[in-house]
Amino acid sequence: TGEEYIAVGDFTAQQVGDLTFKKGEILLAIEKKPDGWWIAKDAKGNEGLVPRTYLEPYS
């Protein structure tokens, strides 16, 4: 299990392996990579890379 984050903006996948999401979606951070791209999972179970700058902790 990971930590929940809320998307603060829309993001469209730029390449294969990225995860597209919309502002307000809750994402589960699976792995926090030091380069600023995290592996996350959305509510539908889709998994991919997301930019850290689009996420804020969800409580």
Rank of each mutant, 00 (worst) to 15 (best):
D42V: 02
K32Y: 07
Q15V: 10
Y58L: 13
G36H: 05
Y5N: 01
Q14D: 08
K33H: 12
E3F: 10
Y58Q: 07
E4G: 07
F11Y: 14
V16H: 12
Q15R: 15
A13N: 04
A43F: 09
Y54N: 07
E31T: 10
G9E: 15
A43H: 10
G24V: 00
K44W: 15
P51R: 07
E4V: 15
A40W: 03
E31G: 08
A7C: 09
K41L: 10
E31K: 11
L27E: 01
S59R: 11
L55R: 00
G9C: 15
L55M: 05
D35A: 04
R52Y: 14
G2A: 13
A29T: 07
I26R: 07
L27C: 02
N46E: 08
V8L: 13
F21T: 02
L49M: 12
D35T: 06
I39T: 08
I39S: 05
L19V: 02
L49Y: 14
K41F: 05
L55E: 03
G9H: 15
T1M: 13
I26G: 02
V16L: 12
W38A: 01
I6E: 04
K22I: 08
G45E: 04
L28R: 10
F11K: 03
G17A: 05
E3H: 10
G9S: 15
L28C: 11
L55W: 00
V8S: 07
P34M: 11
V8C: 13
G48D: 00
Q15G: 12
N46Q: 10
G9D: 14
E25K: 00
G48P: 00
I6Q: 06
A7W: 01
L55N: 01
Q15S: 13
G48Q: 01
D10K: 02
K33L: 13
G24S: 04
T12V: 12
T20K: 04
T12I: 12
R52V: 13
Y5F: 11
K44I: 09
W37E: 04
V50G: 02
E31R: 09
V50K: 00
E4P: 13
K44M: 13
K44F: 14
N46K: 09
P34A: 14
T12H: 10
G17S: 06
T20W: 03
I30W: 05
P51K: 09
I26C: 07
E47N: 07
L27N: 00
L55Q: 00
E47R: 11
T1E: 13
G9I: 14
S59Y: 13
K33N: 13
K32D: 03
D35W: 04
N46P: 01
A43Q: 12
V16S: 12
I39P: 02
I26E: 01
I6V: 10
K33S: 11
I26H: 06
E25H: 06
R52K: 13
L19R: 00
A7H: 01
I39M: 11
Q14P: 05
Y58H: 10
R52L: 10
W37R: 09
D18P: 02
Y54P: 02
T53R: 13
G36Q: 05
L27I: 07
Y58T: 09
K44N: 14
V16K: 13
E56C: 13
T20N: 08
E25S: 08
K41E: 05
G17R: 05
A7S: 07
T20C: 07
D10A: 07
L49E: 05
I39F: 11
F11G: 02
E47Y: 14
D35I: 02
Y5V: 03
D18I: 11
F21L: 05
P57R: 08
E25I: 03
G24L: 03
L27K: 01
G24A: 03
G48H: 02
W37K: 08
G36V: 03
V16M: 11
I39K: 09
I6F: 06
Q15N: 14
D35V: 01
A29N: 02
Q15T: 11
V16C: 12
L19T: 01
K32A: 07
Q15W: 08
V16R: 11
Q15L: 09
E47G: 05
K23E: 07
G2M: 13
A40M: 15
W37Y: 09
L19P: 01
Q14T: 13
T20D: 07
L49P: 04
T53Q: 14
F11C: 06
E4M: 15
K33C: 14
W38H: 01
Y54C: 15
T12E: 11
A13E: 04
G45T: 02
I26N: 02
P34C: 13
G45M: 04
I26D: 00
K23D: 04
P57C: 08
L28T: 12
G17D: 06
P57E: 10
N46W: 05
F21R: 00
I6W: 06
D35M: 04
V16I: 13
K33R: 14
L49R: 15
A7Y: 02
E47C: 14
I26S: 03
L28I: 15
P34E: 14
L49V: 09
D42Y: 00
F11H: 07
A43R: 12
F11W: 14
A13G: 12
W38V: 06
G17K: 04
Y5W: 11
G45S: 04
A29W: 02
P51C: 14
A13Y: 03
I30S: 04
A40F: 07
E25T: 08
A43N: 10
Y54R: 08
K23C: 12
D18C: 14
I6K: 07
K44T: 10
K41Q: 11
G45D: 05
Y58P: 05
G48K: 00
F11P: 01
E3L: 11
I26T: 05
K23W: 06
E56W: 08
T53P: 07
V50R: 00
Q14K: 12
G36P: 03
Q15A: 12
A43S: 14
K22M: 09
V8P: 01
A29Q: 03
A43D: 08
D42Q: 02
Y54V: 09
T20A: 10
E25F: 04
F21W: 01
L28S: 07
S59C: 14
E4F: 15
V16D: 13
E3T: 10
G9Q: 15
T20I: 04
V16N: 10
W38T: 01
T53E: 15
E25N: 07
F21Q: 01
T1C: 15
A13L: 04
T20M: 05
G24F: 05
L55H: 00
K44D: 11
Y5K: 00
